[in-house]
Design a protein around this nucleic acid. Sequence first.
DNA 1: TAACTACTTTATAATGATTCTAAAAAAGTG
DNA 2: CACTTTTTTAGAATCATTATAAAGTAGTTA
Lengths: 132, 132
Amino acid sequence: MKYIEKLRNSGLRPTKQRLQICEVLFDADKTFHFTINELEKKIKKQINSKISLATVYNTIHAFEKKGYLKQIPINSNQTYFDTNVSDHHHFYDLNDEKLIDLENCDVGPINILKKINGKKIKSVEVLVKLED
Amino acid sequence: MKYIEKLRNSGLRPTKQRLQICEVLFDADKTFHFTINELEKKIKKQINSKISLATVYNTIHAFEKKGYLKQIPINSNQTYFDTNVSDHHHFYDLNDEKLIDLENCDVGPINILKKINGKKIKSVEVLVKLED
DNA sequence: TAACTACTTTATAATGATTCTAAAAAAGTG
DNA sequence: CACTTTTTTAGAATCATTATAAAGTAGTTA
Ligand SMILES: [Mn+2]
Ligand SMILES: [Mn+2]
Ligand SMILES: [Zn+2]
Ligand SMILES: [Zn+2]
């Protein structure tokens, strides 16, 4: 019930599928990173019903547009998303192929000295690659 | 002729195709960013011969493995490469969908305060997204 | 509730970047 | 020139993602 308002306020109808996806994404103890494929498995396990893959894609993109999810840029054939939408950075473990959060305080302040005429900074993201 | 040694020293046979791709990539006045698709067009225009798409992929990946190219992580359906292999960061212009180099000196020093046990830092990359 | 409209879900097909395959060609070696 | 190994190539396969279009659902108004 707790996500109905949230969806309505975003102009998204609170459908059964969207509410189920909300549960999986936002009722977790901790925030987490995922690909669509991983999320699909998680949904199947947690909720005991099938949601069409197209709906999962649609919903994730809708949630991203509304700012409830972030897309994490790493070189992968699959897109990674993050339920942690706070301003933060990432470790990427090249061996385990896993993302790890770096809170903003874990990285010293970042100073972008160069300016581009007529453009403004929307975000600053740091990706730290790790290896054994 | 000037790339024959470079390729041999890397254990890559200096074939006609590899030498032509070297010319396009490394004889340019400035370093540049590209996707495989963009590179294919560039090759067709500059060199007047066709190189199989599979060969372009093979060669680019071979060059990347040898450290002659860098892969740039941005969220795109296509992989971006960089002929500038120096340690540097990027602006990504969301409107023009173009990468712009940020030399290391354009960004203050970055301090990663968090450590992960048994892992060492391989690289630190900053992506600054720009909008109008 | 019924009727109506707009939005959503779904199975399935299409797309498109990338990788694979296996045969022909080229390079290196002696 | 043989002979081996690597490379190129066209075309097929893969697979994440997006498009399609028909059926279902939500919201609204009577
Ligand atoms: Mn997307
Ligand atoms: Mn690659
Ligand atoms: Zn994160
Ligand atoms: Zn660059």
